[in-house]
Amino acid sequence: MQLDDLYRQVIMDHYQHPRNQGQLADDAIAVDLRNPSCGDEIRLQMLVEDGVVKDVRFRGSGCSISMASASMMTDAIKGKTISEALHLAHTFRGMMKGEPADLDELGELESLQGVSKFPARIKCATLAWQALERAAGSSEVDGEAKA
């Protein structure tokens, strides 16, 4: 087990300097999620217009993996359509299961690939993505874009 495979520099950078941290106005879609087994929490807010993620913010507390994953996720989905964002979530979950990953689609997120070798930490990495999936399933996102 190589710790450097897990804690890559990109992850540490996002952990130390999280992107898109903060709050959006009240009309944004908001999802609060926690991982009851360890206490990690995230509040994800998303502003969706015409099926496109116009803005996204998160707040939370958790380990380096969960916070870095949230930071990278918000960076990655900004400007994407909801269906593109959900596709990315699917690809990310695949990578966590150790499936061959589409590196072009994942971009920087590829740095989290090492988590797949630490089964106890996969839940940390997927917390933000679960919040995204919830937010995308929210009734406030119009049905067509969701599909």
Partner: peptide, 27 residues
Amino acid sequence: HPHDVATVLDAAGVAVRAGHHCAQPLM
């Protein structure tokens, strides 16, 4: 974060618990 502490300890064969220890009000 305690998760990260526990993962680094585990890499050295040391098993400790990280989390809220089923005592959220105390946390």
